[in-house]
Amino acid sequence: MLDANLYEEELHPTPLGATWREFKQRHVAVFGLVILTLFIIVAIAGPLLSPYAPTTQHTNTLLIPPAWDDNGSILHVLGTDALGRDMLTRLFYGTQVTLFSSILTVFIALGLGVAMGVVAGMSKGLRSSFINHVLDILMLTPTLLIAIIIVAILGTGLTNAMLAIGLALVPRFVHLTRDFVREEMNKDYIKTARLDGANLTQVFLYNILPNMVELLIVQGTFAISVAILDISALGFLNLGAQTLMPELGVMIAEGLSTVYIAPWNILLPGLTIFLMVLSINIVGDGLRSALRNRLTH
């Protein structure tokens, strides 16, 4: 036994593998990941799973309760709404609209935020000061106010709601990137790269960005959960997606008129939003502590 080569037995996982090993340690986080994957699958494949269209009105089956109720029907597993539209189908499409519009919003905000953060982090003087003042105002203004202003100028619609929420999300990425870039610029490996003749763009792309990706993923995850909450809230207030679009917040707002006789019309879409946000938060939290543990262990 003694002559076995110790070095070959030792496992050297890649950074990604190490993160996954830490992530697996927390069963709740894995559970969250499973639920999130389910949501993503449903969002992509939902239209294939359901025999109905989200706008088809089954006029002879209005306000049917979910199938486990005595009056329920197996044709509409989660019941129908006041216009006879199948709830399960609408939830599939709603997940699609809400989840993907949030992810898209966050991606755009992330790209813009990182670009501006790099400029703010690497530049000095008036330009940086100007960017920061404007961003502070954006960050201090409540999301709903930004949305109201954008709706007043451009009108309602899902795109405008995404624009408003994207605007509100940009500052947090800018602050994150700027602080990170500031901190890294003083480190020795950046100085080495600079001495080797790399210009600022190269330093960012090849030295700073690879170190920042994990941080951005964690923050992006939390930003997606914020975006889902805000997009559905705007839909609920009739400032975002409009009535015809099966967005989860809009569905809750529509269910309000029949809440006395059909409470599942607001309970189920709300539950979907809640579970989606919860699973994203759990995954984000698990990722964050996995990264922290990976660096300390």
């Binding site: 709740v28 959960s225 909450l229 559905s232 809230a233 609920f236 207030l237 917040g249 809750i252 309000l256 809440v259 409470p263 607001i266 309970l267 709300g270 939003i273 809640f274 946000v277 919860l278 938060n281 759990i282 939290d285």
Partner: peptide, 21 residues
């Protein structure tokens, strides 16, 4: 930790509607 995670995942408008309901 787990209960606070659940709490801040609530959409505020849904929570208010649930309370009313």
């Amino acid at each position: 930790m787990s209960s606070s995670m659940i709490m801040y995942s609530f959409p505020v408008f849904w929570l208010a509607l649930l309370l009313i309901l």
